[in-house]
Each structure stands twice: as C-alpha cells, then as structure tokens.
C-alpha cells in the first residue's frame, strides 16, 4: 500500500481541475439565472409579436453595435492577457487586463447614454407614456431594462473581479504557474460577453 507517503493533507494539495470545475458549475448557474429571463422573453415575444416588432424598431442600433464590438474585443484582450502571462510577460498581461476593464467601462458609459435617451423619450417603467402603450410594448421595455440592467451588473462585477486579478498579478499571487484565478476571471468575462451576444439580437436586431 502506497498510502504511507500520502499522510500529507489532501486539501492543501493544489488541484487546478477542481478550481476550474467549480468555476464552470458557477457559470452554469449564471446561465440558468439568465435562462429564466430568456424563457420569459420567449413567451412574451410569442404572445405579443407585433408589439415587440414595433418596440424593437425604436432601439438605437448604432450604440448596440458599438457595444457589441467593445465587449467582443474585451473578450479578446482578457484571453490575450492569460496567454501573455503564460508566456511570462507580466507587464503585457497587466496592460491587457487594464484594457479589458476600460472596455467594460466604455460599455457602461454607452449604456448610460442609451438608457438616458430612452428615459428621456419616456420609455421607462411606470412612465405615463409607456403605461398608455399596448401591454406588449410595456413588456418589451420591462424586459429590456431588467435583462440589460442585470447584464450591466454582471459587467460591473466582472470589472471588479479583473481589478482584483490585476492586484494579484502585481503581488505575484497570480504567476505563470498559478494562473487558474486569472483563467476563472477570464471565463466569467466571457460569460458576460456571451449573454450580451444573445441580448443584442433579441432587443436590437429582430424587428
């Protein structure tokens, strides 16, 4: 029996597969969380096709497209930051992580202007203009604010997480050999990206 040597503590033994598995399970729960809203969207779209059609036309496709480009690029920069650190280029990795955070910020700034414009037009929950519209119209904007709002919250969380990763990288907690934390943060950022890739066509493109 070879267990004599194993008296060491199993849980102190590093296991990157375990960390990744935990992260994937967590991302899975996030997908289901958003899945609940996509389910509601599907039902209401089916029930109010004409209203959704009209309401989606009033969305600003330009801002939506720019934001899609920003998020897709930021997914690239976070992936490159992992690759950079794996190649022992710490400074480059830090710069790329920083760029990802800046892209996240740009996305939110755009979102802010977009929401302000909609609110200015009276398209916000409970506004007299919106209440007077058909129920499909109300539901479209209700879902729009809730889904993009919750997505925006995830962008903020992702930015905070990546800022922590930058700190860890500076302090050499994350190194080319101990990179699993940065990988997990990257996975989270990709999730944020993927959800947006579905939100964009559902609210802006399908008219």
């Amino acid at each position: 029996m070879s267990t004599q040597e194993h008296t060491a503590v199993a849980h102190l033994h590093r296991d990157d597969v375990r960390s990744r598995m935990g992260m994937w399970l967590f991302l899975f729960t996030e997908l289901i969380l958003f899945g609940g809203m996509f389910f509601l969207y599907a039902v209401y779209r089916f029930l109010h096709q004409a209203d959704f059609h009209v309401a989606a036309k009033s969305m600003n496709i330009l801002i939506g497209t720019v934001n899609t480009a920003i998020l897709l690029t930021s997914s690239l920069t976070i992936a490159l930051s992992i690759a950079a650190l794996q190649n022992k280029k710490k400074i480059l990795s830090l710069i790329l992580q920083g760029i990802t955070v800046i892209f996240g910020l740009l996305f939110l700034v755009n979102k802010y202007f977009e929401w302000s414009a909609e609110i200015h037009h009276g398209n916000y929950p409970g506004s007299p203009e919106l209440i007077s519209q058909s129920s499909g119209h109300i539901l479209f904007f209700g879902l729009y604010y809730v889904m993009t709002g919750l997505h925006g919250l995830h962008v903020i969380i992702g930015m905070v997480v990546i800022m922590f990763m930058m700190r860890f990288t500076i302090k050499d907690v994350i190194t080319p050999d101990h990179i699993v934390k940065l990988e997990a943060a990257g996975l989270y950022w990709h999730l944020v990206d993927i959800i947006w890739i579905f939100l964009f066509p559902l609210f802006y493109l399908i008219t």
Partner: peptide, 26 residues
Amino acid sequence: PIIGITLLLVIIERVFGVGIFDPALG
C-alpha cells in the same frame, strides 16, 4: 438559479413596476 431570478423579478416588480408578472401591465 430559477427561483433566484424569479424572486429577483418580483422585487424589481415591486420597486419599479416593470410589469413582467403584473397582470395590470400585461
């Protein structure tokens, strides 16, 4: 996660009145 989002939507419904579940708003 399904109950999470559902209860979150009820909270949002109460605070902002978005109408996702409220029959009065469709």
